[in-house]
Simulated assay, not measured.
Amino acid sequence: KPYLNRKEIAKYFGVAESTISYWATLGMPVANIDGRKLYGKQSITQWLKSKEEPKPEQNKKPLAIAVVKDK
């Protein structure tokens, strides 16, 4: 099923139902059909991915090692 109720979507993502409610307050997509809230697996997955922070990049500058010889 592409759309699930709150209990099902919580189980699908391995979180508490209260977490689903909280995510909805943060802007997670929710379909409201005849007063019934449904949650799309694909749209929520995309929403979660949009919230991911990029991994901190390591220093991209190459290390330069110089040898100085006395004349």
Rank of each mutant, 00 (worst) to 15 (best):
A24G: 00
L48V: 09
K69R: 14
P54I: 03
T45Y: 08
Y12P: 07
R6D: 10
R36H: 13
G27M: 04
M28E: 01
Q42H: 11
P2L: 09
V68E: 07
I20E: 01
G27E: 02
T25R: 13
K11P: 00
M28T: 00
L63Q: 15
P62V: 08
E17F: 01
V67C: 09
K60R: 12
N5E: 12
N32Y: 04
K1I: 11
I9T: 05
P29L: 09
W47F: 14
T25D: 05
P2G: 09
K60P: 06
A24S: 07
K69H: 10
I33T: 12
Y39G: 04
R36M: 11
S50N: 13
K60V: 09
K61A: 11
E8H: 06
K55I: 10
E52H: 11
A64R: 15
E53C: 13
L4F: 11
K61L: 12
K41G: 02
K55P: 11
E17K: 06
I65D: 08
A64I: 15
D34L: 11
P62A: 14
T19F: 07
R36A: 06
K61I: 08
V30A: 00
K37R: 15
Y12T: 05
I9N: 07
E8S: 09
L63G: 08
A31R: 13
G35A: 01
Y12E: 14
Y3W: 09
V67Y: 06
K71N: 06
K49S: 12
T25S: 10
K71Q: 14
V67W: 09
A24H: 03
V68F: 15
L26H: 10
A16R: 13
P2C: 05
W23K: 02
L38K: 06
G27L: 10
G27R: 08
S43W: 00
E52Y: 07
K1S: 15
W23T: 01
V15K: 13
Q58V: 01
S21N: 07
T19A: 13
K60Y: 12
A10N: 05
G14N: 11
K51D: 03
A24Q: 06
Q46V: 02
K55G: 07
D70S: 15
S43F: 03
D34Y: 05
Y39M: 02
V15W: 05
E52I: 11
I44G: 00
K37A: 01
K69E: 14
I9P: 09
L26D: 04
S43V: 08
K7P: 05
W47S: 05
K7H: 04
